[in-house]
Computed example of a mutant assay.
Amino acid sequence: MKTLALHNLKGGVGKTAAAVNLAYLAAANDVRTLLWDLDPQGAASWYFHGEPQDCTAKDLLRGPPSTISRLVVPSPYRQLDLVPADFSYRYLDILLRKIEPPRAALQRLLKPFAGQYRLAVLDCPPSLSHLADNVFSAADLVAVPVVPTFLSLRALEQVQAYFQQEGFDAKKLRPFYSMADRRRSLHRELLERPPRAMARAFKAVIPYAAMVERMGERRAPMAVYAPSEDPALLAYAELWLEVSAALAL
């Protein structure tokens, strides 16, 4: 099983939309997929109509690794299951610090799924924390959505510096442009002349689009309701092809 994390230090950059759409596209391409919503806000869970099960973060970490298997619920879509978020996940950062070895708890929790799924997608809260350390250790690929603005690029640079400082494998970290609006001169400039921080970026550019925002109205991935020629849907499809190639799926 390969593990893909969607992470950004900054919120509001299209992270959850990417996690939901990539998980759906993986499943639609016959890759049995598990989406684990690690963000206590539970946006990815809400898109997939997933309700948290009767198990808190404390129960999850204190019980045997198999405990997590009873948290899995089916999504409305074939080949795609969900571990819904729970509000107790706001304590995950504190609880994970009590596990030894300190950065391997999440990897341990994912292990029981290795025989059932080909891909695990982690939708992560926006932070650099002990939970993030566990994500960076467990993930085969960390995809970072970046809005073409200086503040969003600064957040990416902070994550890149953190990887170097903490000894994580920098090859895992792959940014991509998200919520790009070519009508804005700054967006165009950063798209046409990408800064050094975007050197290893995926080529797909997710546009700022009303069709993406309608995911909240439809509570569904874009491919369920958007026309097949929609530019944003095509951009997510291109991103999926790049991600699947990077993960050798």
Rank of each mutant, 00 (worst) to 15 (best):
H7E: 06
N8W: 03
N8G: 05
T16Y: 07
N21H: 09
N21D: 09
N21E: 07
L22M: 08
Y24I: 09
L35Q: 00
L38V: 01
Q41A: 06
Q41N: 07
G42H: 01
G42V: 04
S45R: 08
F48W: 00
H49W: 12
H49K: 14
G50F: 08
E51P: 05
D54R: 15
C55D: 09
T56N: 05
K58V: 13
L61Q: 08
G63F: 13
P64D: 10
S66D: 14
S66A: 14
L71Y: 07
P76M: 02
P76L: 02
Q79P: 00
L82H: 01
P84M: 05
P84G: 01
R90A: 12
L95M: 12
L95K: 12
R97C: 12
I99Q: 15
P102Y: 06
R103S: 07
A105F: 01
P112C: 11
L119E: 03
L122G: 01
P125D: 04
H130R: 14
V135Q: 05
A143R: 01
P145C: 05
L151F: 11
A155W: 06
V159G: 01
Q165K: 14
E166W: 08
F168Q: 05
D169V: 04
A180I: 03
R182S: 14
H187V: 07
L191T: 05
L191W: 04
E192Y: 13
R193I: 12
A199D: 10
R200L: 12
A201I: 06
F202R: 08
V205F: 03
V205P: 00
I206K: 09
P207C: 10
Y208M: 15
M211R: 14
M211L: 10
V212P: 11
M215G: 13
R219D: 03
A220G: 05
V224Q: 13
P227A: 12
P227R: 11
P227F: 09
S228H: 11
E238K: 14
L239A: 02
L241Q: 15
E242H: 10
V243K: 11
